[in-house]
């Protein structure tokens, strides 16, 4: 009866999560721990994932497809186009502020979503994973700073 609730494909998810820059340092066992906290959502091309100014409750990982980041109401002029393997929505999650831009699905896409409470619970209770994810986030921000310094668009 409880198979009713268990329709996920954990091995496929593990592979997809392993391909994310944020989790590239995690061991398969650690990835399994993270995967248990990730929700999977499918979005259609054009669908709004979150709006600018919204309260940020989750961090998103692109498992397949593309996502555009843009100012509210300026979907035709994206700030960045993100590909599979990239992360977004982490800024509002970390500083607790509102979403700084709108996120929309640029193509039909599959996203991993980790809720704020689960994310911080993981970071507080698992030092090794927390360190590796923190390094992942630091690398992510370093690449943004480098790109901005080189005059490129923010991913």
């Amino acid at each position: 009866m409880f198979r009713l609730f268990n329709t996920s494909r954990p091995s496929a998810l593990l592979q997809q999560l392993g391909g994310l820059s944020l989790f590239s340092e995690l061991s398969p066992r650690e990835l399994k721990i993270v995967a248990a906290l990730v929700h999977q959502r499918r979005m259609l091309a054009g669908e709004v994932i979150f709006d600018e100014g919204e309260e940020g409750q989750a961090i998103y990982f692109i498992l397949a497809g593309q996502v555009t980041i843009c100012r509210q109401g300026e979907a035709e002029r994206p700030i960045a186009v993100l590909e599979a393997g990239q992360v977004f929505g982490e800024l509002a999650l970390i500083d607790g502020g509102p979403r700084s831009a709108q996120a929309r699905a640029a193509s039909d896409c599959e996203l991993g979503v980790m809720f704020r409470g689960d994310f911080f619970n993981l970071m507080e209770s698992h030092a090794l994973i927390a360190t590796r994810i923190s390094f992942g986030l630091a690398r992510h921000y370093a690449s943004i700073v480098r790109r901005l310094a080189a005059g490129g668009a923010q991913p």
Binding site: H39, R41, M43, I49, E54, Q57, A58, V113, F115
Partner: peptide, 14 residues
């Protein structure tokens, strides 16, 4: 949570 539409998902998780 899987039954919740995308638009309401984040708030419903909350």
């Amino acid at each position: 949570s899987r039954a919740v539409p995308n638009a309401f998902f984040e708030r419903t998780l909350h």
